[in-house]
Design a protein around this nucleic acid. Structure first.
Lengths: 131, 131
DNA sequence: CGGTATCCGTGCAGATACTG
DNA sequence: CAGTATCTGCACGGATACCG
């Protein structure tokens, strides 16, 4: 379309082989764009954080969902969990290099949506006025 | 982090006001990154398509989910539905300018994941070998 | 502090059948 | 051709309680 070089996905889309159930990319995309995954990525982009810090910065998330989200992202190699054998316990979460790239990509998408919200609302209003 | 200029979202994340339930951006992100939303965007990026064409190019999608996905994206102003009063019926779907931008952003994310799959798999393998 | 276990309600997605 | 209607299951997420 606006780009002259074909993106790899386009080829696969045309052959109906993109993002099939057997491809891990679907699962990774799911984790990265999940309700809390986006927020975890953006908060961790600020730097290493503890569990309770993450919980405080991400308003409204339960311990369960934070734990699950962190496990999913750790499983994808997006972040690293480091547990220190101390009392009281301390656990720190850090983005891997892969995770830092992931955070950039997700931020790019989320930022675009954020700044485009007025246009989305305008489009909605136009459809109401002249359907 | 790697960028020097603060993205708008970062500010909001720190104040816990990002992507709250009342913000339409969450819903738009959901539609754009949903299982079928991604594929619809990428197929429509090729140009205007009919319902049955979309169904054929996106392997495995049911009529119900294609219909629902198209309605959601139309509701966001991402695509336009044009119905021609003929027999047999003909309906065409076209990305709006907003939708074309959306498709580019989603492609950028999806392409990155796609080309990064080997690195994701490598990260997984490393954790298995040295947990 | 940093979690896990369990229960449970809601909503999304699939299958199937029918329609203008 | 281009959908809608209905049923249904099961995964996702919230609340609660408990543990190292």
């Amino acid at each position: 379309m606006t780009k002259n070089n074909r993106p790899p996905l386009t080829q696969l889309v045309q052959r109906g082989e993109l993002m099939s159930a057997d491809c891990p990319s679907r699962e990774i995309l799911l984790h990265m764009t999940s309700r809390w995954g986006v927020l975890v990525l953006m908060v961790l982009a600020e730097g290493t954080q503890r569990f309770s810090t993450l919980r405080r910065k991400i308003g409204g998330i339960s311990e369960r969902m934070l734990s699950h989200t962190l496990q999913a992202l750790e499983g994808d190699g997006i972040l690293q969990r480091v547990s220190y054998p101390e009392v009281p316990p301390r656990v720190e979460y850090t983005l891997t290099p892969l995770g830092q790239e992931a955070a950039e990509k997700v931020s790019a998408l989320a930022d675009w949506i954020e700044v485009s919200v007025p246009r989305f609302l305008q489009a909605r209003a136009d459809r109401v006025r002249k359907p």
